[in-house]
Simulated assay, not measured.
Amino acid sequence: MTPRPERAAELGLEPHPEGGWYRRTWTSPATAETPRGERPAATLIHFLLAPGETSAWHVVTSDEMWLWHGPGVLRLQLGGEGDAPVEGEVLALESSAAQRLVPAGVWQRTLPGTEEVLVSCLVSPGFSFDDFRLADG
């Protein structure tokens, strides 16, 4: 495991199962019915990657809106909607493109960067680990 970055400690972030560091910062009090049960209408996390860190291929059953805070660039790779990810389009989150959407059911991962980067991720309907899957292998 990578040592906890100073900014992760300052923000109270913990290791995320996919890689990187996170903490839920908001959960909507409103709820939504989904095929997998009731969920908050939306949730929000901080997510931090240190230089060279990545997140593994994963898929979520809800839309995810990524919001860039910097300072580095976060490169987000999409992997299609199949049973397993395939290398696809790479989206950059940076000052000129500070918001990016990953639609529900689309595989995604982050690629290593050279600078620390902090983003937020708004998930709707709200995130549950019951709706999250890491790629095999």
Results as ranks from 00 to 15, higher is better:
residue 119 V to Y: 00
residue 21 W to L: 09
residue 72 G to Q: 03
residue 77 Q to Y: 08
residue 13 L to N: 07
residue 46 H to L: 14
residue 55 S to W: 01
residue 49 L to R: 00
residue 42 A to H: 03
residue 84 A to P: 06
residue 12 G to R: 02
residue 102 V to G: 02
residue 15 P to S: 10
residue 71 P to D: 12
residue 43 T to P: 05
residue 31 T to K: 05
residue 132 F to V: 01
residue 55 S to T: 06
residue 34 T to G: 00
residue 33 E to L: 15
residue 122 L to K: 01
residue 92 A to T: 12
residue 104 A to H: 03
residue 51 P to T: 04
residue 41 A to T: 13
residue 64 E to M: 04
residue 12 G to T: 10
residue 108 Q to D: 06
residue 71 P to F: 14
residue 37 G to H: 01
residue 29 P to N: 07
residue 101 L to D: 02
residue 20 G to V: 01
residue 85 P to F: 09
residue 42 A to T: 03
residue 136 D to E: 15
residue 116 E to Y: 02
residue 137 G to R: 12
residue 125 P to C: 11
residue 75 R to G: 06
residue 115 E to A: 12
residue 55 S to V: 00
residue 48 L to R: 00
residue 36 R to L: 12
residue 81 E to L: 01
residue 129 F to Q: 00
residue 59 V to W: 01
residue 87 E to K: 10
residue 87 E to C: 11
residue 111 L to S: 08
residue 42 A to C: 05
residue 63 D to A: 10
residue 17 P to F: 03
residue 121 C to R: 03
residue 27 T to D: 11
residue 85 P to G: 09
residue 40 P to W: 08
residue 115 E to T: 06
residue 60 V to F: 02
residue 115 E to M: 05
residue 20 G to P: 08
residue 61 T to R: 15
residue 78 L to S: 08
residue 124 S to F: 14
residue 100 R to I: 12
residue 5 P to D: 03
residue 102 V to E: 01
residue 45 I to Y: 00
residue 131 D to W: 06
residue 117 V to G: 02
residue 124 S to M: 12
residue 102 V to I: 15
residue 64 E to G: 13
residue 74 L to Y: 03
residue 63 D to W: 09
residue 4 R to Q: 07
residue 121 C to V: 14
residue 65 M to N: 06
residue 93 L to Q: 07
residue 19 G to W: 05
residue 50 A to H: 09
residue 62 S to Q: 13
residue 100 R to T: 13
residue 60 V to I: 14
residue 67 L to K: 04
residue 48 L to C: 00
residue 64 E to A: 11
residue 23 R to L: 09
residue 78 L to W: 09
residue 70 G to Q: 04
residue 101 L to K: 04
residue 111 L to E: 03
residue 40 P to L: 08
residue 22 Y to F: 15
residue 60 V to S: 00
residue 57 W to Q: 14
residue 28 S to R: 05
residue 70 G to N: 04
residue 90 V to I: 15
residue 50 A to T: 13
residue 63 D to I: 12
residue 61 T to E: 15
residue 19 G to C: 08
residue 97 A to W: 04
